[in-house]
């Protein structure tokens, strides 16, 4: 997926791995350090699209120590999502690792995205589905799209999604002069 999001940068995992196969916690931790350096070297980017092109296999331990740990570390501040993840076995391993750490990671196939690892709660699902169809959204926009949805209620849902790692957010100044959050999909 080519992100339309100008906050996003593509990161090719295999370039951090030295080999096309990643396995084991030790290997994962070495790659993790390189990934952190990369993220810190690009402070202007909020979203990192993890391309698995060239990555042949990863085991669950490696998955847990690399992108899943990275997503957890930066939860709420920066987001990580997968593109080019076609291999079913590798997908299972990423899912198992993300599920264990209760860290959602978006998987994009073309313009369709879904979280792996864990999904949003039933109460926040409609807000999440609304959010991932656009680059950014404000609670007021979602509230306006659903009859009887208050802005306060919509804000609560988005805040929960942000805290759990499904969305990112930035603080804006509202027309009224107060603080208003814009919520960003990851990808």
């Amino acid at each position: 997926m080519d992100s339309m999001n100008q906050n996003a940068l593509t990161l090719k995992l295999c370039e951090f791995m030295e080999t096309p196969e990643g396995w084991g916690r030790d290997h994962g931790r070495k790659v993790y350090q390189k990934l952190i350096d990369f993220v810190e070297d690009h402070p202007g980017f909020m979203i990192f699209m993890v391309s698995l092109e060239g990555t042949k296999r990863v085991d669950i331990s490696f998955a847990s120590e690399t992108i899943v740990e990275l997503a957890r570390r930066y939860r709420g501040q920066k987001g990580f999502c997968f593109v080019d993840l076609a291999d079913q076995d590798m997908l299972e391993n990423w899912e198992a690792a993300a599920s264990r750490k209760k860290q959602p990671i978006m998987l994009w196939e073309g313009n369709k995205g879904r979280p792996i690892g864990i999904g949003p709660s039933r109460g926040a699902l409609s807000a999440f589905e609304f959010a991932i169809t656009r680059e950014s959204v404000k609670a007021a926009e979602f509230a306006a799209s659903i009859p009887a949805m208050s802005i306060a209620n919509a804000s609560t849902k988005f805040k929960q999604l942000w805290e759990q790692g499904f969305l990112l957010r930035r603080e804006d100044i509202a027309e009224s002069g107060g603080v208003e959050f814009s919520y960003y999909r990851i990808g």
């Binding site: 196969e21 396995w23 084991g24 916690r25 030790d26 296999r57 085991d59 669950i60 331990s61 490696f62 291999d87 079913q88 076995d89 590798m90 391993n93």
Partner: peptide, 20 residues
């Protein structure tokens, strides 16, 4: 194909468990 991917993961995890 499925077996190959699964087997690789199993062996990688078991060997890594020895290191741990």
């Amino acid at each position: 194909n499925e077996l190959e991917g699964a087997a690789w993961t199993i062996f990688a995890e078991l060997i890594d468990n020895i290191f741990s």
